[in-house]
Computed example of a mutant assay.
Amino acid sequence: MLDGHDVVLLDLDGTVYRGGELVPSAAGSVQDVRGRGVKVRFVTNNAAKSPQAVADHLARLGLPTEPVEVSTSSQAGAAVLAENLPEGAKVLVVGTSALESEVDKVGLVPVREVGEEPVAVVQGHSPDTAWKNLAEACLAIRAGALWVACNEDVTLPTERGELPGNGAMVAALKAATGQSPTVAGKPERPLLDNAVVSAGGTRALMAGDRLDTDIAGAVRAGMTSLMVLTGVHTPADLLAAGPDKRPDHVAPDLSALHRPGAESVVAEQPEWKVRVDDTVLELASNSGKDDPLGALRTMCAVRWRHGSGAIAVRGADPHADSALRTLGLS
């Protein structure tokens, strides 16, 4: 799959690691990519941590990483600000010191209060964001300040479960101001574009577990995409995906990066046959081969030609029934 690509963009949570552990195939797959001379960039919507902190975390998990290999939405947000503001302009920061640092690095002046007359607001996740911080941002935005959000992820995955993410705080300011921000993180292009530029690449491959951020971002950026089934979204989500969220490849994990692309491409497989109408998709085996992922790629290829959205799925024989059970579709 790496043939023709000079940089691989990798989502983190759900793709490279889950909670406090690496996905089993991740370390070897990333090292193999590097060994092929293909650049790696870890792209994260989390604006709370610096590239150094992300690299240190990956190293502790068992995946040595250089900070330059990490691209964050805080960097992307700062880049958007720099493109639109003169050097030395004041920016009200709602977020962590990591976001504040990125604003400073691009020649802008981070501030925390509207009384300091900021001409822009940048908003990223911080567990310490309070009403006071949102109030300052609200006043600045109402006064005409440029508003950049590092991402609009409504929830944040944690070991305790899904908790409010930056998008939830952005939604509060949308309601209070009647305005909408420019978004820097996935699925918008700035984060992915900046990651490719930082690697000196031109032919990127994006790998991730989320259709709404990783895959949608790749579609918008015109990048080849790989969905891995190690994180949030499931075969059922994939089958229902609309045109703006459809990956080119689907695989169990990142080990697919080192296999021929034909093995994971979403296309009809000779071992399976699919019949679909407006309400039901029926899967049948042509060979008796045990290949649930081949069945999924075939179902997606056929389903996507006919439409999108949830659809009932059934098997036409025991082999098909087994594949559907493995995929969680029955």
Rank of each mutant, 00 (worst) to 15 (best):
E268H: 01
P235T: 03
L296E: 01
H233L: 01
T234A: 04
L257P: 06
G242R: 15
R303I: 07
V276C: 12
V266C: 10
R297P: 11
V250M: 00
L293E: 05
V280H: 13
V265Q: 15
L281E: 11
A241G: 10
S285Q: 01
R246S: 00
H249T: 03
E271H: 12
E268Y: 02
L283C: 09
R305C: 02
S308V: 04
H249R: 08
H258A: 11
V266Y: 15
W272S: 04
V302Y: 03
R303N: 12
P247M: 05
A251Q: 05
R275A: 13
H306Q: 13
R297Y: 05
D278G: 12
D291E: 07
H258I: 01
K273A: 13
A262G: 07
E268A: 14
V274I: 10
V266A: 08
D253Q: 08
L254H: 02
L281R: 07
E263W: 05
E263M: 02
C300W: 11
L239K: 03
S255A: 15
P235N: 11
R275S: 12
S264L: 07
G261D: 07
D278V: 08
H233A: 05
S287R: 05
V232G: 00
A240Y: 08
W304P: 07
G294W: 14
D237N: 14
R246I: 11
Q269E: 15
A295M: 10
R303T: 04
V280N: 02
D291K: 09
D290Q: 10
S308F: 13
R305V: 03
A241C: 12
L257A: 06
T279C: 09
S285K: 03
D244L: 13
H233N: 15
V250E: 00
L283T: 00
K245Q: 15
L281H: 05
A284D: 02
P243W: 13
L296R: 04
V265A: 15
T279R: 12
K273H: 14
A256M: 04
L281G: 09
L257F: 10
H249L: 15
V280S: 07
L238M: 13
V280Y: 02
W304D: 05
D277F: 04
A301W: 14
L257M: 07
L238F: 14
R305H: 10
A241L: 09
R297V: 01
D278R: 12
D277P: 03
H249E: 01
G231N: 08
S285T: 06
M299S: 09
L283I: 06
R259T: 04
P270C: 03
